[in-house]
Computed example of a mutant assay.
Amino acid sequence: MALRIKSHWSNEGATRSLTEIATALASNAWRLALDKAINLHCERFVYRDDAQRLAVIREYLYFLIQIGDRLAHLSLSEAERRELITAFAAKVIEYVQDNSQDLLGPGDYGRTFIAELNERSGEYADFQLEDDGPSYAFLRHLGHEIQSLMGQDEENRWVIDQVMDKDGYEAYKRFAGAFGDLLDS
């Protein structure tokens, strides 16, 4: 079944606030991250437990927030970009908190997400989003982080290749397309 993400508004003539756009982006990012985590399982990579699967989802979310920030930088003023990305990240944090709590029990998962997001933001700062998508280094970093989470055992040895060569770029492509459509409509 094909993954459905929001790329158009039901009433295209209405003006949308940056917060409304951020909410749609967060929903899209969550769905894409979840889809890519599921795809790794479908490709016969093995998760140890739900905590590891959630960690992979978070890595995709860090990546997509960075992509969103780069795309916003190209099309919005600095104040608008800050408002959009702050609202986007805040909504993603809600998804992470709710889903982590459902699977892992009570905890302050949002605070951990913020700390890791800040760390990843610094790491991704040196990587370029080029006209045709994330640079090799950008995708390699995503793959490296997921490989670190999944381990080097026999089943997961090649997860970095799957993420770099296929899943990371596909997540970028779907997210960037929806980003542009939501911002333009």
Rank of each mutant, 00 (worst) to 15 (best):
G13N: 12
E83H: 07
L54D: 08
Q101H: 01
S27C: 04
F63L: 08
Y169T: 00
D35L: 05
M150L: 11
F88S: 03
K173S: 14
A137L: 09
W158A: 09
G122Q: 12
L61V: 05
S10K: 15
A72E: 06
D184Q: 09
L64K: 13
F113K: 02
G177A: 06
L40E: 12
S10F: 11
N39S: 13
L129S: 02
F88C: 03
A87E: 08
I85P: 09
I114T: 13
L54T: 01
T112Q: 15
Q97C: 08
G122D: 15
G143W: 10
Y47E: 03
I5A: 03
G122Y: 10
D49H: 03
I67T: 15
Y109A: 00
R58H: 10
Y136R: 09
N39Y: 13
A37P: 05
K166P: 00
D184R: 06
R53G: 02
L139V: 05
Y95R: 12
M1F: 09
I38W: 11
S185R: 08
Y109V: 00
D35K: 11
L61S: 02
Q97I: 00
Y95F: 12
S75C: 15
E20I: 04
G168A: 04
E155L: 07
E123Q: 10
Y169Q: 04
R4T: 14
A2T: 11
I5R: 06
A171D: 00
L40V: 14
F179A: 12
Y136S: 05
I93Y: 03
F88A: 04
R31C: 00
L71W: 04
F127V: 02
L104F: 01
E170P: 00
A87P: 07
L32K: 09
